[in-house]
Structure formats: structure tokens, C-alpha cells
């Protein structure tokens, strides 16, 4: 783990490079010839109708789909900081510690708030009480949750409100100080106020982490993303500067989707 949040290097080289990536569940191919670059300084939003493969791409980046027996890479590769993710020398456990993930349905463990915040550190083998407490406070502060929970750290996390639980999940992910945070529709189960707080949080943290967000909410993509990629039926249709994609897309398919006319 790095000693301090290293600001993402502003280099021409993109942090994540997806090259001719084909991905399948068994015989059912879900991603076709994907080419996509994501820079470390950007918040990237992935949009598209359900089943277009955007979540699959997200789950391929931290290789959590490995746990699905039938999932496999057909061809192509994903490079993160130049390393091919599916090369045999990649340590999946270390990869996941450095590429955090937040899920659609907030899913804190049925334990105390504190234990949730430090779970990643505990499984990484850190036992020192002081280190754990420090990390818990830091990550809960980063997730803008500290003031709300500091007096009840040892109560069950499941007693929090939905928005708080989702922020706890973000805190849990950033306690490991990952470089990249993958968010799979993080606000889908939240009300507008809680959603606003999460979006605010993403904007606050965007300089420390590279965000990749899957969302169905186009307003959300517009509000928080620098670049937006539109997927349709397993293919990347267009990847653009967010403002341009929503106002003057190159592809007519994109235009009909963002204006709600895609049938």
C-alpha cells in the first residue's frame, strides 16, 4: 500500500486500456471487440441499456467475474498501468485490493460499523489495533460518514440508513487506498437526497481515485463524469467528452439513446 494517496500521474498514457476485448459467459458472448482507454484523472461513466455489457466490463476490471464458473476471456486484453490483467503472473488478491468496488445494492456485512470499515485491512493481515482505528477514521471521514457514526462505531452497520450504508461501503473500499474505484450503479437503490450526497462525495474524491461508474441515470453521468462511454449490445458505440456526448454525439444511436428515443 502506498504511504499517502498518490495523485494520479497526468501522463499521456491512459491508466486502463481495453484492447480488442471479447468476453463470454459459456457460449454466450457479451462483449465484442471492445477498445477503450480510461485516464487516471478522469471520472468515466459507462451508460447503455440493460444487458449491454457495461457491468460485465466493470467486473472484468477487478476480475471479480472469475468467481463465475463459466465466465471467460475470449480474446483481447485489458491493461492496467501497462500490465495485462489476465496474465498468469497477476495476483488477483492484490489486484482487488488496489481496484475497489462498490455495488448497486449496498451490502455492508452484518457486523459493527468499525468492523466493516476495516474488513479489507483485516483480511490483508493487519492486526494492530491502532492502525485499524486510524484507518477506520480516515476512510469514514473520506466517505463523509465520520460525524454521523463516530459515537456508534460498534453498533451494527445494518442499522444505518440506506445512504449511510452505501457510504460505509465506499469507506470500506477506500480504507485499502485503492487507485481505482469501480462503482456499479451506486445510487440505484437510493433516494435523491442520498444520491446527491454520493455524487458530492465522488466529486470530492475524484482527485485521489480513478472512478469508473456504471449508471442508468443520464443526469448523473452529466453531473459527475468527465468522459462517458455508450454501450449497445456488447459493443462500444461511442466514447466522448461527457458534454459533447450529451449535446452533440457523433453516432445517431447515441443521440437517440441520450434523448430517450431508442427503442
Amino acid at each position: 500500500m502506498p504511504s499517502a494517496p498518490v495523485p494520479a500521474s497526468v501522463s499521456a498514457e491512459p491508466l486502463i486500456q481495453v484492447e480488442k476485448f471479447n468476453y463470454a459467459y459459456g457460449d454466450h458472448q457479451v462483449l465484442f471487440d471492445l477498445d477503450l482507454n480510461m485516464r487516471s484523472t478522469d471520472v468515466t461513466a459507462l451508460i447503455g441499456p440493460s444487458g449491454c455489457g457495461k457491468s460485465t466490463l466493470l467486473r472484468a476490471i477487478n476480475r471479480i467475474n472469475d468467481l463465475v464458473d463459466s465466465a471467460r476471456v475470449v480474446s483481447g486484453r485489458i491493461r492496467v498501468d501497462g500490465v495485462d490483467l489476465y496474465a498468469p503472473e497477476v495476483d488477483v488478491i492484490s489486484l482487488r485490493r488496489n481496484v475497489g468496488m462498490v455495488f448497486q445494492k449496498y451490502n455492508p456485512f452484518p457486523r459493527s460499523i468499525f468492523e466493516n470499515a476495516v474488513y479489507g485491512l483485516r483480511v490483508a493481515g493487519i492486526k494492530n489495533r491502532h492502525d485499524l482505528e486510524e484507518a477506520a477514521e480516515r476512510s469514514l471521514r473520506s466517505a463523509a460518514l465520520w460525524d454521523e457514526v463516530k459515537d456508534r462505531l460498534h453498533e451494527m452497520a445494518t442499522g444505518l440508513s440506506g445512504g449511510q450504508q452505501q457510504r460505509l461501503c465506499i469507506a470500506r473500499a477506500i480504507a485499502l487506498r485503492p487507485r481505482i474505484l469501480l462503482m456499479d450503479e451506486p445510487c440505484a437503490a437510493l433516494d435523491p437526497i442520498a444520491t446527491a450526497r454520493i455524487e458530492e462525495l465522488i466529486l470530492q474524491l475524484r482527485h485521489e481515485y480513478t472512478f469508473i461508474i456504471v449508471t442508468h441515470n443520464m443526469e448523473q453521468a452529466r453531473r459527475i463524469a468527465d468522459r462517458t462511454a455508450f454501450f449497445y449490445k456488447g459493443r462500444l458505440v461511442e466514447e466522448q467528452d461527457t458534454m459533447k456526448l450529451f449535446t452533440a454525439p457523433d453516432d445517431p444511436l447515441t443521440e437517440s439513446y441520450v434523448t430517450g428515443r431508442l427503442t
Partner: peptide
């Protein structure tokens, strides 16, 4: 969701099972 979360936080299979 619990299992996904644990995996995504870099837990090994055994850690996920027992924790």
C-alpha cells in the same frame, strides 16, 4: 452481496468462507 463484497476487498476464498 456479502460474498461479492468480501471478494472485492481482496479476501481469499478461505477468508470469505470463515469471516
Amino acid at each position: 452481496g456479502y460474498i461479492d463484497a468480501s471478494d472485492a476487498l481482496g479476501a481469499t476464498k478461505l477468508q470469505t468462507v470463515f469471516r
